[in-house]
Design a protein around this nucleic acid. Structure first.
Lengths: 210, 210, 210, 210
DNA sequence: CATGAATGAGAGTTCATTCAT
DNA sequence: GATGAATGAACTCTCATTCAT
């Protein structure tokens, strides 16, 4: 029914509003400091209203996580346009870090927060997360096939590369790069990304594969 | 006096007990969820007692962080024994990851937790943390001097290497490696460490420096 | 809307209930000994409920103080009806003492409690308190103009008269008149008030101004 | 026994030390903010030690009150030297206010604090307080006898005069004279005291008794 | 659909007081 | 006589959540 659908739509619009608002607040103050009341006040509804759209606070976080994984996946796909596998891989990493630093709260929720991945059982919930990982693996595999990359266990290589970009992103997000002057951080992050993924690797693989 | 010293010892033992208990609880539930009351219950004392040994909750966290940095620094120094700079660097990373995975609560507190590094101003408090970083930089520098490593901005390289091991450690600690079967994780971590630091690098630098 | 207004009314009724209850408890036990819990228990609500109506404990005290100053001011104005300046002044003092003895909790809060007047800076908050003082000064001035009173520094005279009635009220409220049998206290207070303000003064000024 | 007496003496010295220290702290921070621990720290003993000399916190306050009454009585007696009854009475009031403003915490404890005079029953404890009151009454009586003062109910007059000086002292101590610039307060207090007790009264009585 | 009103549970912290040593 | 160690009972205040309307 049309009416029913409209209701559904409105319902999902309201959910969207709540999620967006929550995220903005998280960005400002970090999520441990955000309360349901804060969100309610911002959208000018009562706290009780939130519970009409979400079972509880956890469901909000959970939904935002999913959203994050979808956003990341979309963002990552931009790298697919590139033909050269190694360039593609580099773009892949660059896009990952860009996403993390531009959406630190999403990133936090997705990869840094404790607990939401309970007991390894809700892997199903994270299939979108897995899709991103598969994208990376495919890319790594293609590099190997194109012989711009020595053969090795794909999971090992994929996990290594992931660890690398995650390390960079999460140290920055948690401000553990405080030993560098603020204005140098961008430079360091960029160079760090290049350090292993471009200049050296290119030569390295070239040479290795002679 | 012996008696006085014994008292002192007991006092510090109690502090130790509190810290240890706090740490265990952190492991289970994460910091943000630990309360003074929890700790008190676990050691079967009253909450007020905690305040005889620590000024407040923050002091507990702070002390644990310092402890962590000291432990890590000691642990890292084991790598110094090795003469070969590249092997030393590898050992360095290995030790780092080992520390992180064997002391995930400490590691979390030190490098993953939100907020403890307030406003970049208490860098002074973290000089032990900096000492560890300096150790890494020295090692990187020596690699460059020994020409097993191409010259580059030392901070960039050090941060890169740190990011790498931090990425590995923190993904594992937060259980983001759930796509691998549990029994394979150790293998993957080890290989990942080797991936960029030994086999490849060695060849790479050798070739590069021809 | 009627409904909206009724809600508003209820809200303000609840505030009123809290304030009234707080006041009663103050009477019994003194402010420093009253807790939010006490109040909550008395009105059979949870402590958290209090915070729906008042930001914190301070706001309750503050509101009660304002209320007190308003009540006093209203009460004082009754004296304005009298034409004769000296009689008016006498009525003024009488009303002041009456207010104090009939509302000892308010009086305590307003003039006897430690601390609420912080740092001399929130004079602005106390403008109602000042209004009462101004009323007194005007009255004194008019007495002087009517020549039933010798000219003198108005502040000195006003402060003197205020001190006098405050002294009477506060000694009684703190039960420092325990050397008099209870049944005589009213008589003594009344006579004390007359002592300097009427019989003597009248004659005194008459004679002085011959 | 000598030893016993020495013990006694030491005991009373310790009590004295505690009382003195408590009083100093009270002066600094107001007594609601002073804890047994504070006192203990200041005298460099343990809190438990305090309880060897005083049953509880209340006993300390109580003792200080007694001390205060004794001090006041001594202080008041200085006025006795004056022969002229009216001058003596004036000196009496002056000394009272001086005591109050120089020892505000004693004064607070003695005349402004809630509660310590429980149920009118411990009048016996306050006989020293009464002695001061008797001193005043005697003085008033002598004024009447010397005919510098019209005959009236002595209690009424004594209470009036007491109220007056108490009013001045307690308003100042509780900083309710905030409407006057700080530098003028001393002047106002002095003049207020004169206002009813000297210049005017003198003339007044002179005239009255013609 | 929306919410005003309410709260249980719990947070960190403080303090007078006790008691075995 | 002195105290180190401990605590029970409070405190103020916050928050996710519920439910009758």
């Amino acid at each position: 029914m049309g009416i029913k659908e409209r209701k559904e739509l409105e319902k999902s619009e309201m959910r969207g509003l709540i999620l967006k608002t929550a995220m903005n607040l998280f960005l400002d103050k970090g999520f441990e400091n955000i309360t349901i009341r804060n969100i309610a006040e911002k959208i000018e509804y009562s706290p009780a209203t939130i519970y009409l759209y979400f079972k509880n606070k956890d469901e909000i976080l959970h939904t935002l996580r999913r959203e994050g994984f979808e956003k990341l996946y979309e963002h990552q796909k931009t790298s697919l346009k590139l033909d050269d596998p190694l360039k593609r891989l580099h773009k892949h990493g660059e896009a990952y870090i860009q996403f993390a630093l531009e959406n630190p709260e999403y990133y936090d929720l997705m990869f840094m927060m404790r607990g939401p991945v309970k007991e390894r059982q809700d892997i199903n919930n994270c299939d979108i997360g897995l899709k991103s990982y598969e994208l990376l693996k495919t890319n790594v595999e293609e590099c190997m096939e194109a012989e711009v990359f020595p053969r090795a266990n794909i999971d090992v290589v994929a996990f290594s590369l992931w660890s690398y970009v995650h390390g960079i992103a999460s140290l920055i997000i948690r401000d553990r790069g405080y030993m560098f002057p603020l204005e140098k951080i961008n430079y360091i992050v960029e160079e760090a990304l290049n350090f292993m993924l471009v200049s050296n690797n290119k030569k390295k693989w070239d040479l290795n594969n002679k």
